[in-house]
Structures are given as structure tokens and as C-alpha cells.
Amino acid sequence: MARGEAARERDAQRRVARRYRMMGYDVVERPSPEVLPDFMDGILPDVVARSVSDNVVVEIKTHASLTGSNDLVAMAEKVSAHPDWRFELVVMDDATTAAAEISDAEFEARLARARHAAEVGSADVAFAFLVQLIAIVARDLAGRNGVGQRGKSDRDVLIDLGFEGIVPPPLLERCLAAVGQAAERMRMTGSDAVPSSEAVAELSDLCDGLRQLL
């Protein structure tokens, strides 16, 4: 992990920990295995927050680091299988998402991974995977159509795709709303941070809609 990215992750960790402390939770950042319950053997989360009625395991990732994070769904399942425990994924907004063409096979694999996460009750993990997939497909579209994207945020790339007439206005508005919702979730903690099944389904539909434009 690059030094700058590590520093941003520590800052995000402190913000999450501070929010839970303000809500009355007992919080441990980067807990050692000795202070974790037995069922979390092999899991080293970024933050654990506990209260009388709620216990939370928090993992912090960048959009880029979600790629290859196949353990997230398994971790979420393992935690959520225990009463009074839940898993929360916090995804930091990257400055940009790397541009690359996405094959049909990779698209289907990423979409299937997100849908599996939703099916096992890990809505926040599914949400993060799908937001990342929207960004990847948008940048693929930009690259194939000669739309500049160097140094631009995912939102700006989407806006340029709309300006060039590549993404139709109704789909563009929905994509921008989804990206905005992802940014808003970064400022939320607790049950309000868990996306609804409708929000996850909307993102899945948006991924399919963008893919049809490739």
C-alpha cells in the first residue's frame, strides 16, 4: 500500500472510530487477535465497536483495493452469522479509478460477486462492488470513445460521457445519483450506512445499462 493511501486509510479509521465513540460504543482500532471473539479467528478488522445491543466489525478499503478482495464476502458472512454482530464496509473515495477495458467475462464475474454478497445479506459489500463496477465501465466507455479522463473523478468522467452524448440523460442522472449516494455513505455510520436492497438492485441495473453501451 502506498504511503499516501495508508495515511488516508488511517484517517478514515480514526473518523469511523470517533463516530462510534460519540454514539457510546466501546471502540478498539486495529484490534489484536487476543481481544477478538473466537468466531473471528483469522479476521483482523480495522475497527471493532461494541455496545449493549450492537457489535460492529468495520473494514476500510479504497475502491482500488476492492479488486481482488474476495475475502470480504466471506468475512461479512462469518460476522453476520452471529447474533448481535454485524459487518460494515467503509469505502474511501479514490481520486481516480484506473482506466482499462473490461471483458464480458470479467464484468459477469464482478456482477456475480456483488449479487452473491447481496444474497447473503452483505448489502454494503455488494454496494461497494457495484459502485466500483460502474466506475470501471464508465472509464472503459470513455477510453473507447476518446473521452479524456486523466486526473478526473468518476463523477466527472460520467458527466463528460453525458456531454458527448454517449450516455443518455436518464441513465446519466441515475449514475450520478448513485455516485453521490456512495459519497454520502462515507459520512454515515451505523445502521443508516447500510444500503437498502432497492439501492443495491438499482446499482446492478445501472451496471447492466452502462455495459450495453460498450
Rank of each mutant, 00 (worst) to 15 (best):
208 D>H: 13
113 R>K: 14
102 I>R: 03
109 A>E: 06
183 A>S: 13
181 Q>K: 07
22 M>P: 02
186 M>D: 02
203 L>R: 14
29 E>L: 11
204 S>G: 15
53 S>C: 04
41 D>V: 08
62 T>W: 10
8 R>S: 11
106 E>W: 10
214 L>A: 06
97 T>G: 04
99 A>Q: 15
42 G>M: 08
146 G>E: 01
62 T>A: 12
206 L>C: 12
136 I>A: 15
158 L>S: 10
19 R>A: 14
143 G>W: 01
42 G>Q: 09
141 L>K: 08
52 V>F: 00
198 E>I: 11
13 Q>G: 09
88 E>V: 02
143 G>H: 02
204 S>P: 03
197 S>Y: 06
120 V>L: 07
185 R>F: 01
96 T>A: 12
100 A>Y: 00
5 E>P: 03
162 G>H: 14
169 P>D: 13
107 F>C: 07
38 D>V: 06
20 Y>A: 08
137 V>W: 12
29 E>P: 04
204 S>K: 00
156 D>A: 15
1 M>Q: 15
114 A>N: 14
149 Q>E: 12
203 L>M: 11
56 V>F: 05
177 A>V: 09
11 D>K: 13
172 L>Q: 14
124 D>L: 01
183 A>L: 07
176 L>P: 09
98 A>S: 13
92 M>E: 13
18 R>L: 11
134 I>T: 13
189 T>V: 05
181 Q>M: 07
206 L>P: 09
132 Q>P: 02
131 V>H: 04
9 E>L: 15
92 M>F: 09
27 V>G: 01
50 R>W: 01
142 A>V: 00
177 A>H: 08
137 V>C: 13
86 R>C: 03
47 V>L: 02
125 V>D: 03
10 R>N: 05
3 R>I: 15
146 G>T: 03
27 V>C: 00
197 S>V: 09
214 L>W: 04
211 R>G: 01
111 L>A: 11
89 L>A: 00
184 E>A: 10
32 S>W: 04
120 V>A: 05
200 V>I: 02
64 A>I: 04
182 A>P: 09
101 E>H: 10
128 A>F: 12
113 R>T: 13
114 A>Y: 07
133 L>D: 07
129 F>M: 12
82 H>L: 00
153 S>N: 08
15 R>F: 06
49 A>V: 00
43 I>D: 02
7 A>K: 14
192 D>F: 03
90 V>C: 06
206 L>A: 14
40 M>N: 02
62 T>K: 11
98 A>N: 10
195 P>G: 01
199 A>C: 02
53 S>R: 01
18 R>P: 01
212 Q>M: 14
56 V>A: 05
144 R>K: 10
158 L>T: 14
19 R>T: 08
194 V>D: 07
